[in-house]
Simulated assay, not measured.
Amino acid sequence: MITHLLAVDGGGTKTALRLTPLAPLTTDPFFSLTSGPSSLTQQGSAAIATIKDAIEYCLEQCHLKAKNVSIVIGVAGAGNPKLKQQLQNALADYPYCIVTTDAHISLLGANNGKAVNTIAIGTGAVAMTLTAESDTELFGGWGFPIGDEAGGAWLGQQAIRVLINSIETLETSPLTGYLIEHFGRDRKTLLQWLKMAKAADFAQLAPIVIEYAEQGCRNSQAILDEAHRHIDNLITKCCKNNELDIAFLGSLGAYYQAHLKTHWQQRVIDAKGNALDGATLLAKQQVELINE
């Protein structure tokens, strides 16, 4: 008998898990946990281990068996069928487990499962539409470094490019001053960092880019000017064929929402929930289907 709903949100920066009773007496989670990154694209087998370990730890701490839990995992990279299947295979011991993308559960959470457009910008950047018929459309979200323009990892990557140009030309700015202090000017050291750096490492530089842009740094402003163009293009693709509301999500969502072009502003709503809310909703729907 299923007694609990387990929601997992896995991305390039962190993994969030939340367990709630199927019939909760309060709105508080029964158990929650945050661990390291689990993007299937970026972390691969390590991501699978992170997710599996988090679920096992949760059930162990709460004295639950796999058969008692409806699980929904929304994870970056699950749009790749091969990677998705690898995660599903690793979780074969859990009879009621759905694997989908982190964008999908964010979409469901944003408007309590009702039709909406979402622009989710954190480590990566992706837009999705949920129609009144419960169909979904996906735009962007191709993954770093080939896609996810304007996401945190992309912002950090552009900052490193500015650093490289500064090392070679000796041109400076507040942003390059910070980066030189952080990374130095040594080519070998920077190349070694680049060899090991993941999306989450680049994304850690995103707040620095924004901070210096607000202080007038021309390099940072140029990066963000390009980022805003990418976001406007993403919104245009997602929203041009519908009149649905737009909800911004993710750690950088509020920043981009504040700098949105005027003609989009009138369609913006505050998100009613987050990715874990969306995963919990889908987990509850799974129970309802099982009980039919």
Rank of each mutant, 00 (worst) to 15 (best):
17 L>V: 14
136 T>I: 13
24 P>M: 14
278 G>Q: 03
101 T>Q: 03
278 G>E: 10
276 L>S: 12
198 K>E: 05
292 E>V: 00
152 G>D: 05
105 I>V: 12
177 G>F: 03
80 N>S: 08
219 N>I: 00
175 L>T: 02
44 G>E: 02
202 F>P: 09
283 A>N: 04
195 K>V: 09
59 L>E: 13
283 A>M: 00
115 A>L: 03
92 A>N: 12
207 P>T: 02
10 G>Y: 02
210 I>K: 14
107 L>E: 02
233 N>V: 01
121 I>R: 08
277 D>S: 10
60 E>M: 10
248 F>H: 03
139 F>S: 07
221 Q>M: 11
209 V>D: 14
224 L>I: 00
137 E>C: 03
63 H>Y: 07
67 K>F: 02
216 G>H: 06
236 T>K: 12
55 I>Q: 05
256 Y>F: 15
100 T>R: 05
154 W>Y: 12
267 R>E: 13
128 M>Q: 07
156 G>Y: 05
28 D>E: 15
32 S>N: 10
50 T>N: 12
177 G>A: 02
54 A>L: 05
234 L>M: 06
127 A>I: 03
102 D>N: 06
17 L>P: 02
73 I>C: 15
279 A>I: 01
95 P>C: 10
80 N>F: 00
12 G>Y: 11
170 L>C: 04
62 C>N: 13
173 S>I: 06
195 K>Q: 11
292 E>F: 05
262 T>E: 15
224 L>C: 10
166 S>G: 13
108 L>M: 12
42 Q>R: 01
243 E>Q: 15
66 A>I: 06
201 D>T: 00
77 G>Y: 03
39 S>P: 07
190 L>Y: 07
40 L>H: 10
284 K>R: 11
71 I>V: 14
41 T>L: 04
175 L>Q: 09
250 G>H: 02
49 A>F: 03
215 Q>N: 06
139 F>E: 04
59 L>N: 11
224 L>Q: 09
102 D>Q: 08
170 L>P: 00
182 H>I: 04
164 I>D: 02
39 S>E: 10
291 N>F: 03
22 L>Y: 05
20 T>W: 00
112 N>V: 00
209 V>M: 12
219 N>E: 15
120 A>F: 03
105 I>P: 09
144 F>T: 04
37 P>K: 14
80 N>M: 00
277 D>F: 09
44 G>W: 03
33 L>V: 04
77 G>H: 10
33 L>Q: 15
157 Q>T: 01
163 L>H: 01
138 L>Y: 11
78 A>P: 14
21 P>D: 13
